[in-house]
Design a protein around this nucleic acid. Structure first.
Length: 254
DNA sequence: ATGCCTCAGCTCCTGAGA
């Protein structure tokens, strides 16, 4: 079984690339972030034709998430229960016996800003909800665009970007809070070359110079860790014409 | 200090992303 996550930065623009990628990589589950479209504009027929069930949760202009799956999605939840949130950021469903949470974590913009405070509130709520989900579902995966680096190994310029957004101690403490629930960073279960990233700035030839961050993550529960055989970032779509700024991350389970 | 790119939208500039 394979599961993947990809921030597509507008599904309107990236739909042909998503379909081409799925054709070449027929994963069982694909979580999408940053759809940037309203629910009535979701291209459900294109995914049906490609052999995928779809759950989607969009909004105008910003955010928006989807779960594509070969098997039907059951017990679907949209956003974090109990959190009053006008932004479409979370889709959760049970697929092939795995509790799958696809999430687009808030950016946070800048430490000290209102958006940073929202990010911290959102992370608090997420952790408590994931704790409750894990109490019910032993096989659980939390994947998406976290907008947080684990540590300096996830940052192309740790000195220049010290304590800036995605790299602050406060954000990283929240990320470790998720690890503290009993989740594992699937990527770090395996050896990878130094400076392996999942996002590169569109500006300043960021991808060409590998000036990136690893901010797209797949966290797995103990039961799924035992089944995990690989976790890879697929840089190839970042080389496409008109690419997303993020690359897909793929988890392989036995 | 700012823009560098990219995308959406009450679109020819602005806000937001990361």
């Amino acid at each position: 079984m394979q599961l993947a996550t990809w921030n597509v930065n507008s599904l309107n623009v990236r739909l042909p690339q998503v379909l081409a990628w799925l054709s070449a990589h027929p994963v069982d589950v694909l979580a999408l972030q940053e759809l940037k479209l309203t629910d009535d504009k979701f291209p459900v027929q294109a995914f049906t034709d490609a052999g995928y069930h779809a759950q989607w949760f969009g909004q105008k202009t910003y955010n928006g998430v989807a779960l594509l799956s070969k098997a039907p999605a059951e017990d679907v939840i949209r956003n974090i229960p109990g959190l009053d949130d006008g932004q479409a950021r979370v889709l959760c469903a049970t697929i092939d016996g795995v509790r799958v949470i696809g999430a687009y974590f808030p950016n946070g913009q800048e430490p000290g800003s209102d958006k940073f405070a929202y990010k911290m509130r959102w992370l608090d709520a997420l952790r408590e909800w994931v704790r409750a989900e894990m109490a019910v579902h032993t096989q659980l995966v939390l994947m998406g665009d976290y907008n947080i680096t684990f540590d300096d190994a996830d940052v192309w310029d740790p000195v220049g970007l010290r304590e800036t957004i995605h790299c602050t101690t406060e954000e990283r403490t929240h990320l470790q809070g998720l690890i503290g629930l009993g989740l594992h960073d699937a990527h770090r279960l395996f050896e990878h070359p130094p400076k392996t990233f999942s996002w590169w700035d569109y500006r300043m030839l960021g991808f060409q110079k590998n000036r990136g961050l690893r901010i797209d993550h797949i966290l797995v529960s103990d039961a799924l860790k035992a089944r995990t055989t690989a976790c890879e970032i697929d840089r190839a779509p970042r080389k496409n014409p008109q690419p997303s700024d993020h690359a897909p991350v793929v988890l392989t389970l036995a």
